[in-house]
């Protein structure tokens, strides 16, 4: 992936600063509050959350569980609206935490579901998905049902489905959390590889700090609920990055410290 010429910003998220959102695919979340009414009283998921992503930037969002990360992605995808504050940006497609593949559709038809959802014919959707399945090492599994795919394969199909939606922004909700360590590392490799040739703006929600540091241009650290951005770490390092690289290790330590679990 090409390194971005982003200016270095640190600490508190800038809510008022003008951003370069004119190219296709930027995202801006500014001072967003979101409270849910539940039977056990109100739960504030986000309080004054701000974040931005420039076009083609990969922004990782890390934070403790229940800090409102999923709410943030749903806001960006237009599935919820903020109680106050602003959310704007290019259209976003979601990749949910669980793969949520349709059990009755083969791998290729699941990958093309977003196209079918827009009214594209089955044949055209398959034609569009086929080269991607090959690129993702799923050749020969096109007609296989999800139940017979491995966890890593299912996750790849799920990612392709979101990618093929053709939206400028990808909202990835802990995409690799359910995978074992080896498969996860492999999937992170796939993701970096795809984004290099098919640049998109990515909001990557994860609880894996190392994953964030290896994949992202910038890491946004969130506080425990109610969630808001407490730190931003700019990562101006070439890719691919090795997790043993001293600079990666150092940045990981910085992120962990911002999370309050630093050594």
């Amino acid at each position: 992936m090409p390194a971005k010429g982003a200016t270095t910003e640190t600490s508190e998220a800038p809510a008022e600063e003008p951003l370069d959102l004119h190219g296709p695919g930027g995202v801006r979340v500014a001072g967003v509050n979101r409270t849910f009414r539940t039977k056990r009283g109100d739960v504030t998921a986000l309080a004054g959350m701000s974040l931005h992503a420039r076009p083609h930037e990969v922004v990782a969002v890390v934070g403790p569980s229940g800090c409102g990360k999923t709410t943030l992605l749903e806001l960006v995808c237009g599935l919820q609206s903020a109680d106050s504050g602003t959310v704007d940006g290019a259209p976003a497609a979601l990749m949910p935490q669980r793969d949520l593949l349709l059990p009755w559709l083969s791998a290729i038809d699941n990958a093309g579901l977003a196209l079918r959802a827009r009214g594209v014919s089955r044949e055209e959707a398959r034609a569009a998905a086929a080269p991607w399945l090959r690129r993702f090492g799923l050749e020969g599994f096109e007609r296989t049902l999800p139940a017979e795919l491995s966890g890593g394969m299912r996750q790849r199909v799920s990612f392709l489905r979101t990618l093929l939606a053709g939206k400028p922004v990808l909202a990835l909700d802990e995409p690799f959390a359910s995978l074992d360590a080896i498969t996860r590392a492999e999937m992170q490799g796939w993701l970096a590889h795809v984004l290099a040739s098919e640049p998109r703006t990515v909001l990557l929600v994860t609880h894996d700090v190392e994953e964030a540091v290896v994949l992202a241009d910038r890491v946004v650290v969130m506080s425990p609920r109610p969630g808001r951005a407490v730190a931003e770490i700019e990562l101006e390092m070439p890719r691919p990055r090795r997790r043993t690289d001293p600079r990666v290790v150092e940045l990981r330590e910085r992120a962990l410290e911002a999370l309050g679990v630093g050594a």
Binding site: E74, A92, L94, P96, L100, L102, A117, G119, A165
Partner: peptide, 26 residues
């Protein structure tokens, strides 16, 4: 039908009818 699946279809701009046809009907 998993509500998360319906949300996913909405981020793909699926109309109500297409969500029914591709997800709920099967």
């Amino acid at each position: 039908v998993d509500p998360a699946l319906l949300k996913l279809m909405r981020t793909f701009d699926a109309t109500r009818l297409r969500i029914f046809r591709h997800v709920e009907l099967p």
